[in-house]
Amino acid sequence: MAARTSVARAVRQLSSTAAAARRPSPFMCQRWAAQASQQQRLFSVSAALREKKYTEDHEWIEMSSDGKTCTLGISTYAAKALGDVVYIELPQIEMDVSEGDAIGAVESVKSASDILTPVSGTVAEVNSELEEKPANINKDPEGAAWIAKITVAGEPGGKMMSAEEYAEFTEDG
């Protein structure tokens, strides 16, 4: 059920990305293709472990199929709450990060938040497209506007929520 929700979300992300982007980007299509194949493999491993998880600070993480890398971003809820994002300070590649560290920051009109990592490891990749187009965070925060990929060195710490739990958490908040 959770996996089906994720696939549905990936499809929504594709359509919203395509609508939002001024020109179709081969980069994005490839990314989606990679995500889709990853989704398929999820079923053969453990759906619970690979499922997108959310933190109380409104970040999401998603483990790669081999469990070595996680992709990190901010939630749609957070992106809406922040308003129009004008700058994203990305972490530096190869930076070692510890669970709970601020690895970057999102600046929006008159308000900003740190981006915290719930998992320790090393920054493997950053979404440098966000340097040019920070507003992408408002368009597709849980898809094309991911922030960083981290080679993980351990399990995520702190409270991690499933999409359903997170939806409840943000309704309560």
Partner: peptide, 14 residues
């Protein structure tokens, strides 16, 4: 002073 503060400060840690 427009937008907002965002500082991965050392104090953000424990």
């Amino acid at each position: 002073w427009a937008s907002a503060p965002a500082a991965p400060s050392p104090h953000d840690k424990l």
